[in-house]
């Protein structure tokens, strides 16, 4: 398991709970950085005290700033950063739009399974 530090950007408290549960299950010592607003995640990425994360799990539909706006706003901060979209959106347009952003390396439906986590883990290991 190479995943050690994961940022989760999702407005839903219970979705955040689900991430925590499944990630802790695969690595009990995993370091989690949850944000319920993308604006706050962006602030963190821009702050000088930020520490690198292995992967960012990003929701699309969020208040104030949605996942796409976040990818747009954090273009420089996300260079060489792996981002995985995690969403309930069934709109194929959302998927193809996500693929136009270089950092986006995967697109998963909620809720994440342990299999999804292993795929993400391999992606990070290859980096």
């Amino acid at each position: 398991m190479t995943l050690n530090r994961v940022m989760t950007v999702d407005d839903d408290r219970f979705d955040q709970l689900a991430y925590r549960r499944i990630l802790k299950k695969t690595n009990a010592k995993i370091d989690l950085l949850p944000f319920q607003y993308a604006t706050e995640a962006l602030e963190y990425l821009k702050s000088p005290t930020r520490r690198p994360v292995d992967v960012i799990l990003l929701d699309i539909n969020m208040p104030r700033m949605d996942g796409f706006e976040f990818l747009e706003a954090a273009k420089t901060e996300l260079e060489n950063q792996i981002v995985i979209m995690v969403t309930t959106s069934m709109d194929p347009q959302d998927r193809s739009r996500a693929e136009t952003f270089a950092p986006v390396r995967g697109y998963f439906s909620k809720p994440l399974t342990t299999d999804d986590i292993s795929v993400i883990d391999r992606l990070v290991a290859q980096q």
Partner: peptide, 9 residues
């Protein structure tokens, strides 16, 4: 439609 400014919490 479906745009919100706050989390459900």
């Amino acid at each position: 439609l479906f745009q919100r400014l706050h989390t459900y919490d």
